[in-house]
Amino acid sequence: MNWYGIKAIYIHEMERFRRTLFQSLASPIITTSLYFVVFGSAIGSRITEIDGINYGSYIVPGMIMLTILTQSISNASFAFYFPRFTNTIYEILAAPLSSFEIVLGFVGAAASKSLIIGCVIILTANFFVDVRIDHPLLMMFFLILTSITFALFGFIIGMYAEGFEGLQIIPILIITPLVFLGGSFYSINMLPEFWQKISLLNPVLYLISGFRYSFYEVSDVSLLTSTLTILTILIGCIIFITYTFSKGYRIKD
C-alpha cells in the first residue's frame, strides 16, 4: 500500500476544507437553523409530537441525514471532478497509486468532512431542541457508513460528470426528492396507505428510519432492513467503481 500517497490526497482535500472552513460550516448551520425555524416552529405548533417524540427533536436525525447525503455527494464529486477539470489529475495517474488507494484518499476525505458537519449539526440542533441519543454507537455506525457510502456515490458522479452542471443534476433531481420524501420531516405512518407503500420503495427512508432509531428508538421500518439497505448501496457503489476502473474508463483517455 502507498500510505504516503493516500495521506497526501487525504490531507490535500482536507486542506481545501480548512481553507473554506467558514463556507463549509456556515451553510449547513444556517440551513439547519432555518429548518428549525420553519419546520420546528411553524409546523411544530400544529404537530406537537410524532411517536411520542417532540416534533422539533423528531426531525433532527432526518435533517442530519439530508445534510450528510448532500454533503458527501457534493464533496466527493467535486473533489474528484475538479482535478479532472483542471487536468491536475495527470499527477495522480502518473503516481504509483492503485485505483483503490485513490478512492480511499478522496472518499476518506469527503466522508470525514461529512462527519464533521454531521457533528456540527447535532450541536446546532441542541441550541433549538433536546437531542437525545439512545444508542450512540449505532448512531455513529449509521453516520459513518452513510458518509462513506454517499461519498462513494459522489465519487462516481465525479468520474462521469462532463461539466460542473453534471455534478448537480443527480443530487438535485434524485437525492433531494428522495430525502424529503423519505420521511425526514414526518413519519410515513402519517401518510395515506397508498403513499406509505410508495414510500417503502425509497431507499433513503430506510436510512433515515434506522438512523432515527439510534436516537429515539422509534422507526418506520426494522433496524435490520435499514442496515441491509445501507450495506447494499455501499456494495453497489464499490462494485460500480471497481468495474469502471477495471475498464480504465472515464479517467484515462
Binding site: 502507498n2 500510505w3 504516503y4 500517497g5 495521506k7 497526501a8 490526497i9 490531507i11 490535500h12 486542506e15 481545501r16 481553507r19 482535478p83 483542471t86 487536468n87 491536475t88 495527470y90 499527477e91 495522480i92 503516481a95 504509483p96 497509486l97
Partner: peptide, 20 residues
Amino acid sequence: NLESFETVWNNVNYSRGLFG
C-alpha cells in the same frame, strides 16, 4: 496544470507524497 489556490510549498510536498 496546477491548482491555483495552493501554495508552492504544499503543492510540491503533495507531489512527493503521491509518489509514496
